[in-house]
Nucleic acid binder design. Structure first.
Lengths: 143, 143
DNA sequence: GTGTATGCAAAGCATTTGCACCTCC
DNA sequence: GGAGGTGCAAATGCTTTGCATACAC
């Protein structure tokens, strides 16, 4: 039984087969995935699991602080709560994704806290923009 | 005829009654609104305009650089391109929205550019977090 | 006149909900 | 046995698309 299953059981939730498979997969998540991704991975081991259950389980896990979600340009993605420790840069032209350590965001976070009393969760939304390559490409237009 | 209508006509687009009304409303937009908001405002003056047309017109305006959209916690909002010059802080607990001058974000923007060559559009996504009031409230839990 | 814009209805997609049934503890 | 969990189907909300019609230029 995985750690997530154990935690949920300890907190008084029932562990069903579906939950166990979903928890296992979520615990082994490679980075950031959509509910659909989770469902696909789960379905490979336990076909009859419904997407609805995936949504509900993700919600439960989030409520219990084991996973979090964040927003990319093209929708929400989930990740283990202990792995959300970076910011994402997404190029709006080529779609390239780059990770930035949250440390780099700390000065801003401190600023927002001291000036506005606001405790920012900077990683919750990706940062869009244009990457180096695309700027370079645009600087020398076709023709 | 509003400035937006004029610009579009100059660029070879046809000006229909629908477009003119939509353009007028968008030009007079108070801050950040959803396509639905625009539709509601437009419909007050010209009831038979379809939401579809609002979507298509916003897309056209964005393509022509007259408006932009950005993402809040609860969906996309449009604003005049010349009025997107601030970042938004949104409290995930009480929903409070605060504006921050983009100047305050410049250090981070410069950092991302110099370290990652990334031209960040920081205002495209709001920043979520917890506001002062809610932190205060949470610090002294009920009971 | 002709190509562009519009309205309408329908399709998409991601997510949520209601409800009967099932099963973990 | 009973609360809690699940599957299914349908509803929702937002946005897009196809197509026949209308109208700006």
């Amino acid at each position: 039984m995985g750690r997530f299953s154990q935690v949920l059981r300890d907190r008084g939730y029932r562990i069903t087969v579906q939950r166990e498979v979903i928890l296992d997969e979520v615990e082994a998540l490679p980075g950031h995935v959509s509910p659909n991704d989770v469902h696909a991975r789960v379905a490979a081991r336990f076909p009859q699991v419904n997407v609805t259950t995936v949504y509900r389980t993700l919600e439960l896990l989030e409520h219990e602080g084991l996973v979090s979600h964040m927003h990319f340009h093209d929708g929400a993605r989930w990740h283990r709560a202990d792995e959300g420790l970076h910011q994402h840069l997404v190029c709006r032209q080529c779609g390239l994704e780059e990770q930035v350590e949250l440390d780099e965001m700390q000065p801003l976070a401190r600023e927002l806290l001291s000036r506005h009393g606001f405790h920012a969760d900077l990683a919750h939304f990706a940062i869009v923009g244009v990457c180096q390559e695309c700027v370079r490409a645009a600087a020398v237009p076709v023709g």
